[in-house]
């Protein structure tokens, strides 16, 4: 069958943002990092803040985030991205600053930096990609690995008696007064992608108003680390990750809430 893909009479409604470089992502097929990168850069493009945004990449799969995001960026030591972002923001308070970190980076080795950065109410966005595994080093157990989940370092399944429970660090973050906006989103469906994008937008808007730390957890997949196809991985995520890490806002600014109740 001959497919008509002519754009005659059509208008452009979606394209790769110009704030991404032309470098193809090195991520495995189906990896949620790509979606998160793309959305973040879409928001930077749409808000016209490319010239005023500085990002901090972590150690983990997204260590090369700066290859893809066409903005000034710094690459931090493992776990220290929020401290690095603090340093940047403190000396450049009028710029938009974000850190982009995985679960091992943010919720294991960088726990102290994460909590204290938020507790200071650093006026930055922290993007937390939670796929419950160490992807870059080859699929080891992460602080957010689910009970019973098999990884290369929990070959018999995560045993909470040995290694403790999957860390709901976002819930911990939400109770800190320095946190202004805390939400948990995902990238598995078009609807969730739209919600995540909205969360990025809000966070940058709040940052412009010096509101404090915005913290966005993105429950994501790791098809390679989980040993599944991307489609299977998303399904597994929905069935296993979402019940433990439910999507939605954990802390909404009061003004937002009031607005919501007025509408209701």
């Amino acid at each position: 069958m001959q497919i008509n893909d002519s754009i005659e009479g059509l208008e452009l409604v979606y394209q790769r943002p110009a704030t991404l470089t032309d470098t193809p992502f090195h991520y495995c097929p189906g990896c949620g990092h790509g979606v998160a990168h793309k959305l973040l850069m879409e928001v930077v493009e749409e808000m016209g803040i490319q010239e005023n945004t500085i990002g901090v990449a972590p150690v983990g799969c997204s260590v090369f985030a700066y290859h893809y995001m066409n903005i000034d960026m710094q690459e931090a030591a493992h776990g220290r991205a929020s401290a690095v972002a603090t340093g940047i923001k403190r000396v450049l308070p009028d710029k938009f600053v974000f850190s982009y970190q995985g679960d091992g980076d943010l919720a294991a080795i960088g726990t102290a930096e994460t909590i204290h950065t938020v507790n200071r109410g650093e006026n930055i966005l922290i993007v937390f990609i939670n796929n419950g595994i160490y992807g870059m080093t080859g699929g080891q157990m992460a602080p957010t690995t689910l009970i019973g989940q098999i990884t290369s370092t929990s070959p018999y399944g995560r045993d909470e008696k040995l290694i403790g429970y999957p860390l709901k660090i976002t819930d911990m973050i939400a109770i800190l007064p320095g946190a202004f906006y805390v939400t948990r989103q995902s990238v598995n469906t078009a609807g969730n992608v739209r919600k995540l994008k909205k969360a990025f937008q809000k966070s940058f808007e709040f940052q412009k108003l010096n509101k404090g730390t915005c913290f966005i957890e993105v429950v994501s997949n790791c098809p390679s680390g989980w040993g599944m196809t991307p489609v299977e991985a998303n399904k597994w995520m929905e069935e296993n990750m979402f019940p433990y890490y439910p999507l939605g806002d954990l802390k909404v600014p009061r003004t937002e809430k009031e607005k919501g109740s007025n509408n209701a």
């Binding site: 059509l10 409604v13 979606y14 790769r16 193809p24 990896c31 949620g32 793309k38 992608v193």
Partner: peptide
């Protein structure tokens, strides 16, 4: 041209066109 495919594409590989 609903753009759902492009939204979930992890490689930002999809461009979408639609009737105005």
């Amino acid at each position: 041209g609903c753009i759902n495919c492009a939204l979930v594409c992890p490689d930002a590989a999809i461009t979408v066109y639609r009737e105005p």
